[in-house]
Amino acid sequence: MNKKGVERKFAVVLVAAIICFSLSVNSVQAQDVATGTATATVLTALAVSAAQSLIFGNIYQGVAATIGNNIDASSGIFNILGQGSAGISISFALPQFIALADGSDRMTIGFSSTDATVDSNNTTPATVVAGDGWINVNPNLLPAATVIGAAGQTNVYLGGRIYPAVDQSAGGYSGDIILTVAYNGT
């Protein structure tokens, strides 16, 4: 092969090398993309309802009346629905009096430190037992360890006492009892 032929061959190889190199360089500088996923499973939302009011019925002026937390027909009953076995924080906002609808008279109401029962087995006020939850606890300081029952429901039963005055106006009295429930993340 003469000198010209060798030079031509060299030139061809050189061009090929440059092309290969540029392709290689391009592949090195190309980007790569990966796609990950964020996932979460949201549990059942809480739902609270007042299944039954705390009912004192007919009372006499000057005669205090008490309703226990274990009376199916009269105890206040609240139902809490949510994720089974989840920890919850619950608290009552209890009234200090109940009043006539027009506000013209009111009557003192009180709650003792044993007036509430928390039932995680979804029984009834009259049939709940200690193993079902927390019996006769303070409605102003409900148990911190309260959980939704395994079946997805917990009930709270509430009793109380009213103190009508001797000159209490006749009529229907009422007051709001508020139960607030929130998951505590446990």
Binding site: D32, A38, T39, T41, Q83, Y183
Partner: peptide, 25 residues
């Protein structure tokens, strides 16, 4: 030398997993 330079590659080893989440928390 030019051909031996590898491109970068990404491997996903783990997703971002929140697991069970309580409403409101």
């Amino acid at each position: 030398m030019a051909a031996s330079c590898p491109a970068q590659t990404i491997t996903l080893n783990n997703d971002l997993v929140f697991g069970s989440v309580f409403p409101g928390i």
